[in-house]
Design a protein around this nucleic acid. Sequence first.
DNA 1: CGGAATATTGAGGGTCATCAAATGTCGTGG
DNA 2: CCACGACATTTGATGACCCTCAATATTCCG
Lengths: 289, 289
Amino acid sequence: MYPRKNADAGSVSTINTSSGMAENGWPRANKLWSNLSDVCTLLRINISSSITDDDFRFQHVHFKPGQRIHTVGQPFDMLYIVNSGFLKTVMIDESGNEQVISFPMKGDLFGIDGIHNRQYTSEAVALSSCDIILVPFKKFAAMGRTHADLETAIYSVMSRELTREQAMVSMLGSLCAEARVARFLVSLSDRFSALGYSGKEFNLRMTRHEIGSYLGLTLETVSRTLSAFNDIGLISVDQRAIAINDLHALKTLRRLPPSRARTKPDSAKKKALAAVAAAAQSTEAVPAA
Amino acid sequence: MYPRKNADAGSVSTINTSSGMAENGWPRANKLWSNLSDVCTLLRINISSSITDDDFRFQHVHFKPGQRIHTVGQPFDMLYIVNSGFLKTVMIDESGNEQVISFPMKGDLFGIDGIHNRQYTSEAVALSSCDIILVPFKKFAAMGRTHADLETAIYSVMSRELTREQAMVSMLGSLCAEARVARFLVSLSDRFSALGYSGKEFNLRMTRHEIGSYLGLTLETVSRTLSAFNDIGLISVDQRAIAINDLHALKTLRRLPPSRARTKPDSAKKKALAAVAAAAQSTEAVPAA
DNA sequence: CGGAATATTGAGGGTCATCAAATGTCGTGG
DNA sequence: CCACGACATTTGATGACCCTCAATATTCCG
């Protein structure tokens, strides 16, 4: 039912020597292991109490671009945390079309969707070289039973993911294409900043097609919108390279004025965009519209 | 920051006599209480072990149409389970627009979004008279620590909600208006059936505007689509009363054929819809497109 | 270098939002 | 009981937004 490359995740936890292990389709596992403290730090969880007595070690596995961490229908028993690299998670509808759900990066947890039916409903694909921490869910939950902070944090992370998806639904239901792309850029900028990277200049790790799938748009609309943002100076874009020139305008770009643009039909869109940018820059002095 | 009717939920748990308590804006609490076993049954959780020793009682509160169970920004410490009635949950974006996120009904759990930031990010409003069970989250989680099945179930419910929202994102990103409305009707039908009510005939508890908000459409589009379904016989609709005439066609309605309709522009849509319905009914014998 | 994948840009049309008007429903009070 | 207003629903006309199709340019990688 899920005829993809890699086998089930269960077999991995049995490999404790981590030599080469190219068997059964799984990529090589580096000899890196994390303890609970490392994991909590990565998830930005404040674990107060002394947990140094935990001897459990979480295994790291390395994936190359294009490799799948888990597939739809695969039996669930692991959560995954990104230690480095970039991925996408996708759902596959009944007609076989992929829909991008999220772009996990360092510190993000994924695989939660597998808990309910004891198998994953989504698929995670590496977009770059990735170092992924395997988190056996049963063990993790059991540790939560003795570490109150950890249990709270697990619930919290799941709640955060739910809120994130709800915000996504809200966005798809109410924002126009330009606002969606603007928010996407702002979101990426914020996430890079939070990780200590530059929020002003970064490279997109995904294609226009994947961005469009994530935002409910076509790749052409994404490309056109990025070009339009570039033309009016909000960003500078060259293929995958992005430079944010006016973060505030991107953040406040909501929905281009419904009508009221008496200019000729041609070039009206660019004028509207420019007007929005101008209004956003001069935060207060809007000339009576 | 959240200047709505009702006060914080925290004060309620202190009321154990449940007399009239019309104070502080909360609606009257009936003298109904549930134990853990009742709650698990309602949530469709299989609790194996003996949990009859639990003396904790979950309070019921009654809400009338229009009343809010919780509001955005309100401090979180409760989850809520619907014992009877129908509600909506909404998110409110920065410009004050409401976006319907879900329509909870009997057996559904809501309030999960409040865990992460210790305050709700959404608002729950009763659409009919509702009997709601208050579930103090800390107490619930603590019970999960001693009842493994319960802990698993809590994680499972949260995972299910996440998956549901992901499916919603996928739908909004890929389906046209007719397919969204069709899925909405099928979803309602399935949920009513699962509760023992008729999945063929039921009343909508929400307005066209709320349906549209939920599906990312305008109320006019919802109305038009329902009328179109009615015209080709898929359903019978009269205001809030719905009768499903062809569930299979609704389930298989995906996306009306992109082009290929060389008929005149007028009435082309109805022909396309009729064609889809016919194709869905004769599940196999499609005459060469 | 050459082929595949990705990205850009243009032209045209379909879907659905917007605006508008009429009808239907419901609760309230005269 | 009916008038009245507020709200919900239906239906039509119009066109903006964005998808589709298409051609070209650019990058990546063997």
